[in-house]
């Protein structure tokens, strides 16, 4: 199996008012298919920048980054969008669900950009909600659900396109610890089914559950294992 994501000496420098600010200074990392990696580090360590790059939301200013075997420096914005749609699933700390939109339609959103019709979207979304344990919440709106339920909806949305990598940015950050545990357990069960999971967190206990940890500091990997 080819690696899901390969980063080779990847750097990312921001230009702020004419001053170059390096956020990543040469990071090499491989996410294998079915991997379970935690990226840890304090804020400002570059872990969020790294996650944006791994998810195809941003492009490196140096080095080579392959996502799903494709070199992101050679992709057009439309191809990047397609890559995010097909290969990556995002889970955010603050869920990022569309208000006034049912759980089912939130989950079906990525399928819209694949040109799939409404009926099929709803069927697939309902099935995916069943898989994350929310079969009874299909037509509920985000404000009618608890934080843990909302994050499960977000995970279902990330999974609905059948991605090879799930990128989770502080997925338990806005949840109490019991709910957080159950969300992690869900991610792990998905990982067991073969989806690679990359978890960005500053919580050592959360990170400890991953198969391996990558510690970021000052834009570099300071420890990997």
């Amino acid at each position: 199996m080819t690696a899901a994501i390969v980063a080779d000496d990847v750097s990312r420098t921001y230009e702020l008012d004419g001053v170059s600010v390096p956020a990543l200074r040469g990071v090499s990392l491989t996410v294998e298919a079915g991997d379970y990696v935690a990226i840890v580090g304090t804020s400002g360590s570059g872990k969020s920048t790294l996650m944006h790059l791994l998810g195809g939301l941003d492009r490196p200013t140096g080095g080579t980054l392959l996502i799903g075997g494709r070199d992101v420096s050679k992709l057009t914005p439309d191809e990047m969008a397609e890559l995010r749609n097909t290969t990556i699933g995002f889970v955010f700390q603050s869920f990022h669900l569309l208000a006034r939109t049912t759980a089912q339609d939130n989950v079906g959103l990525p399928l819209v950009y694949r040109g799939i019709g409404r009926r099929e979207r709803r069927e697939r979304a309902a099935a995916m909600l069943g898989r994350v344990g929310l079969a009874h919440r299909v037509t509920h709106r985000p404000n009618q659900m608890s934080g843990g339920e909302q994050q499960r909806v977000a995970i279902a949305r990330a999974l609905v396109t059948g991605p090879s990598v799930l990128l989770a940015d502080e997925p338990t950050g806005n949840l109490d610890s019991a709910t957080g545990q159950s969300v992690l357990a869900l991610l792990e069960s998905l990982n067991a089914d073969g989806v690679a999971v990359v978890l960005v967190t500053h919580d050592r206990d959360v990170a400890a559950r991953a198969h391996r940890q990558i510690v970021m500091k000052d834009g570099l990997i300071s420890a990997a294992g």
Partner: peptide, 16 residues
């Protein structure tokens, strides 16, 4: 803006 960011993250092209 946030909604736009989310839509882009799940695969919306600039054109969409």
């Amino acid at each position: 803006t946030k909604e736009i960011g989310l839509r882009k993250a799940v695969g919306a092209r600039p054109r969409d």
